[in-house]
Design a protein around this nucleic acid. Sequence first.
DNA 1: CTACATTTTGACCAATCAGTCAAGTTTTTT
DNA 2: AAAAAACTTGACTGATTGGTCAAAATGTAG
Lengths: 211, 211
Amino acid sequence: MTQTKTKTTRIQEINRGIILDAALEVFSAYGFRGTTIDQIAEKAGMSKPNLLYYFPRKEDIYVTVLEKTLDDWLTPFRHIDPTGDPLDELAKYIIAKLKLSESRPESSRVFANEILHGAPAIGDFLQTHLRQIVDRKIAVIRTWIDEGRLAPVDPHHLIFMIWATTQHYADFKVQIGAVVPDRVEDENFYEETAAAIITILFNGIRPRQDY
Amino acid sequence: MTQTKTKTTRIQEINRGIILDAALEVFSAYGFRGTTIDQIAEKAGMSKPNLLYYFPRKEDIYVTVLEKTLDDWLTPFRHIDPTGDPLDELAKYIIAKLKLSESRPESSRVFANEILHGAPAIGDFLQTHLRQIVDRKIAVIRTWIDEGRLAPVDPHHLIFMIWATTQHYADFKVQIGAVVPDRVEDENFYEETAAAIITILFNGIRPRQDY
DNA sequence: CTACATTTTGACCAATCAGTCAAGTTTTTT
DNA sequence: AAAAAACTTGACTGATTGGTCAAAATGTAG
């Protein structure tokens, strides 16, 4: 067994964590090119050479940050349960994603920025891993529809709509804040948002005779 | 009448146009910081000092590009007609925005990038002009709901859902392409998308007894 | 054709920034 | 306690880049 030296010390673990937290904030605010290593180092409270001791290249920090956020954001998606009630499962997913948008908008923004610029760092991941997960969930949705437990809609576009909408509240926060400044302040904003989205998505906006 | 020298020559008009076209492409691919003036100059087929003769600062180019795209993207929104049929008007709006996503994804991306990074250049515009337009349309939607011609949903969140979804197809094109590579190739992809979104939004995904 | 304004560019400058290096300090191991 | 390993940093470097400048080329009006 030729184990490569992978002895991770306590200090390493702590400092890598500090660096990644700092980097997430800075990358989300300024993007990859717009971020300087000095900025991250300052926010992390250490010298630049020291930071580069842990992550030899700027890109290494960026990729690591991205990988962590990707995992965060995919977790609720993975948790959609084929054996559960379709509407319940989707509602739970929407609520989970909106909660993430509220608690960790930075990671959503880093991800959005990466995709926006053509996914140079995670294109492969999207085409392999992400696609695989999506395919599985698409199959689940198809089954639900076949069983008559969900209206016959296009599964891909349904997923895209949910992704788009939930991302929007993190990524376009500034715009939302500009358009409805009073409501965003409300501490229940995200609960209200979830309720409103679920209502629209479940029932549609076509008026019905039966209220 | 003390008219300030605003004699815009033919050459100026042409070159400004060339520069803005080139800048749109480069900014959309690399963001503000990620774009170099040299890149724009090369794409525009002129020297850097010459480009700076028309736009003295990099930011001037950026702001001008943003203003143009903002106008593009707001036009269909403005065209929502209070006297029209609610569902028709919203369907028309969705189709128009998706067409723009298809024909001019770059401008959508420049805009998204700007918002993502906190709207440093157009924050004011959002808080004044955009907000005003949105307020007006919100009122229209409220009227429609009061008249029973639209289901009683939250107007703000309805607008955000439509914005989010339609933007998504331009901004997250790479992700969509990775997840459903075969379908994106289809030349009818945007028509199908529009149809699917409209179906979901109008009818919801709750299964009904009455097919 | 002449004089003037506009347009174009090569050469340059100062600032910024990713990454290096060598020398020091601290922690861990024996 | 001594030696080795891991950690930290000030000072530096080379490349990039936003922007300047002065001089040349081109266009235009009388």
